[in-house]
Simulated scan of single mutants.
Amino acid sequence: MAKAMARHILVKTEAQATALKKRIAAGEAFDLLARQYSTCPSGKRGGDLGEVRPGQMVRAIDQVIFKKALREVHGPVKSQFGYHLVQVFYRD
């Protein structure tokens, strides 16, 4: 079965996610911004979701993790929880 390692930042608004994505693109550390801004419990771990398998995450995030390019920051991606920025490290 497929598996991947990813991290994300979850915030309430698309504008906040877009602003954080710009900060990451300008060189700020993803993990530090996740610790400061993410509303997901994974924020305490720098947004680390660990190793995930298809179907473990909500569909919108699953699509990013298992179909989008590696090591890029994707998003904002809307889910019922808010807006996510997602980065995938590897996929098997």
Rank of each mutant, 00 (worst) to 15 (best):
A4V: 02
A29L: 14
Q56I: 11
F66R: 06
R59F: 10
Y83S: 08
A15W: 00
E14F: 03
A26M: 10
H8D: 05
P76K: 08
L85H: 01
I61M: 14
K3N: 09
Q80S: 15
S38R: 01
T18G: 00
V11H: 00
L49W: 14
L32Y: 07
A19Y: 07
E51H: 04
L32W: 07
Q63I: 05
A60Y: 10
Y83N: 06
V86Q: 05
L33Q: 04
G75N: 03
L85T: 01
H84L: 04
M5N: 15
H8W: 13
K44V: 10
S42E: 07
S38K: 02
I24L: 00
L10M: 14
R59Q: 11
E28H: 07
K68V: 00
Y90F: 13
V77L: 04
A19N: 11
Q36N: 12
H74M: 04
G43I: 10
M5P: 00
Q63F: 05
G55E: 10
G47P: 12
G50I: 12
A25E: 14
Q87V: 06
V58D: 13
A2C: 06
F81G: 03
G46C: 07
Q63A: 10
E28Q: 15
D92F: 14
R71Y: 06
T39A: 12
L70R: 04
A69L: 07
I65S: 07
R91W: 03
S79V: 04
F89C: 06
G27N: 00
H8K: 07
G75M: 04
E51C: 07
D62Y: 06
F66Q: 03
Q80W: 10
Q36M: 13
P76T: 02
T39C: 06
A25Q: 14
F81P: 00
E28N: 08
F66V: 03
K44T: 12
E51P: 02
D48V: 01
A2L: 13
A25D: 15
R23M: 07
Q80G: 15
Q80I: 10
K67L: 10
R23Y: 03
D92K: 14
H84S: 05
Y37M: 05
A34H: 00
R45T: 10
F81Y: 14
P76N: 09
A26S: 15
H8V: 03
L20Q: 00
